[in-house]
Design a protein around this nucleic acid. Structure first.
Length: 228
DNA sequence: ACCCAGGGTCATA
DNA sequence: TATGACCATGGG
């Protein structure tokens, strides 16, 4: 795991994720980017910004039709308008960032799941990138890339994969330290960068079809020199 | 024209 | 519990 991270990093460099100015913008982006290209999400966020709508209370006040109109470029706009409001309702009712940030990671994760429209990946995006919690985000690219590399089995559950990455990276990193321990902030930085690199690599070359007869990954990535 | 994207929910078997 | 339908825009 760690070796793959280092190869990706040396090839693509730092990714500077999550691209946003505030924690709330990250959370909004996490919902809007569900099964959607980020370039589409950007325009929707610009729309929200232009109307001063990067704010939970104002979003809740906005008429559904207006909100849908701003979200249109990000696709599934009716659905996402509803999900965004569900999230904002939860966010305000639970006292906003400061209050939520006092919760333990697992508690906060459980709370996030109570929002209709927030599933495991969206919750983990929010935990990692908005709340700086050491949670590894699993997405379609992660599955595809590491399955093709032969590192993980097909059909593992989201939680199984997440645990695998978290445990494996934790062990490798703490072994590398003399003290045998590792600061949470360092774990967060690695998880942050790693997920971003996986997405970058996935967008770059790891498509679903054609099944990469010549896929850089199954070939141990001659092109990008990525191996296990 | 076709494929794909930084998923999640719900109804059905 | 495991599939399938559905959500929708925009870029390659």
């Amino acid at each position: 795991m760690l070796a793959t991270y280092e190869q990706l990093y040396s090839h693509y460099g730092r990714q500077h994720w999550w691209p946003a100015e505030t924690a709330f913008e990250i959370m909004v982006g996490a919902i809007l980017t569900q099964n959607t290209a980020w370039t589409n999400v950007e325009q929707a966020i610009v729309n929200l910004k232009q109307h001063g709508m990067l704010d939970a209370q104002r979003l809740l006040r906005a008429p559904d039709v207006r909100l849908g109109d701003w979200l249109r470029p990000s696709g599934y706009f009716n659905l996402k308008a509803r999900r965004l409001k569900n999230f904002c309702r939860w966010y305000t009712e639970n006292g906003g960032y400061e209050a939520l940030n006092r919760l333990e990671t697992n508690e906060l994760r459980h709370e996030l799941f109570s929002v209709n429209g927030v599933g495991p990946e969206t919750a983990d995006d929010i935990l990692l990138y908005a709340f700086n919690r050491p949670v590894f985000v699993i997405d379609a690219y992660t599955r595809r890339i590491f399955t093709r590399l032969g590192i993980v089995d097909n059909g593992l559950s989201y939680e199984a994969l997440r645990s695998l990455f978290e445990q494996s990276l934790y062990r490798s990193l703490s072994q590398r330290n003399k003290s045998g321990r590792i600061h949470q902030a360092r774990l967060v930085r690695i998880f942050n960068e790693y997920h971003a690199l996986i997405v970058m690599h996935g967008k770059d070359i790891c498509r679903p079809r054609p099944l990469c007869q010549n896929c850089c990954l199954t070939q141990r990535c001659k092109r990008y020199k990525i191996s296990i």
